[in-house]
Design a protein around this nucleic acid. Sequence first.
DNA 1: GTCTATAAGGTGATAGAC
DNA 2: GTCTATCACCTTATAGAC
Lengths: 195, 195
Amino acid sequence: MARTTGSHSEITGPRIREAALRLFAKHGYAAVSMRQIAREVGVQVGALYNYTPDKQALLFSLLQGHMDELLAAWEAEPRGADPLARLESFVRFHIRFNLARPEAIFISYMELRNLEPAPFAAIESLRKTYEQELEAILAQGRDAGVFQLDEPRITAFALIAMLTGVNTWYRADGRLSEPEVASLYWDMTRRAVGA
Amino acid sequence: MARTTGSHSEITGPRIREAALRLFAKHGYAAVSMRQIAREVGVQVGALYNYTPDKQALLFSLLQGHMDELLAAWEAEPRGADPLARLESFVRFHIRFNLARPEAIFISYMELRNLEPAPFAAIESLRKTYEQELEAILAQGRDAGVFQLDEPRITAFALIAMLTGVNTWYRADGRLSEPEVASLYWDMTRRAVGA
DNA sequence: GTCTATAAGGTGATAGAC
DNA sequence: GTCTATCACCTTATAGAC
């Protein structure tokens, strides 16, 4: 299993991130050792420290990368002009994006508490930005008289929790396809906001 | 800080469980050591093993105790005769019960993966029993023509995820009281099921 | 039931050779 | 950039004294 010595920075870096993501999601950040990550990648533990100053920075980098990707993907998503169409875009986008990255979603919810206050606040801020995207859609729809709701912020929390929950039970080889699931959740969402 | 030697089984046992629950919820099961728990309780680490065969059994016992309490409390909950009233009972019960035990709820969702297959399956089975209580209400309402929904099981997953999400943002000293929050979620639930 | 001491092994991180 | 070797420390769990 010993590897030859040499320079592999272009592939080792991503491989470390992939292994860490998979292991953190499966066993939890605290339960995974740097040695385990190194073994998975096929390098010795000392080599990891060429790519991260410490274990926590590796976790932070994964979480931040995920949130950046989420916000960029939503930014790039085609969306309808009116609040109802935008809400449907958000629901379908959220489910599609989350089901494509179950491991990143998992650690984003579970491992935040392993960050020090400053990195924690940085990730929380990105999450809040995303939540506010939905909150804004809800507030616009309410102001336009399309949605019946009193608390856009709380409704946004409730809907995001509901939508993210898909990841806990959905199986790609299950009875329902992803678009079918998205349509079910869109029906519930539409009704929940009184549209 | 040294304690006198002596027999304290009636108080040490519960104190170990309380300390473990609090620490597991705050830092995560894997990140908490038996020494930390012992320090919190005010005993030496060896004494813990009079109350649990090992660390994992302590986690299992906490999770099982929580699920038993949940099922017993729902069993004892007064509930309406028709599906709509029963659904409202469930929603208000779930929010009230969860907000009263944030730490137990937290570890029930986060630390399940730290159990071996057999204990894991035992807790999953209890959770499934609870989910089926809601699923049955939804199916009854659909059959009675009171609810509009095609998938009682998936609707149950969606609603439980939504309701459990309250724990992530609710603060007792916040703007909204617990009954007000419950009413907001009941409005969304009622509409989501097409009642 | 609680203590102290210890076994046996894992931890994150670093230094210096190549 | 990767390796080996190592530091200083922490881990779960147990044995035997009290």
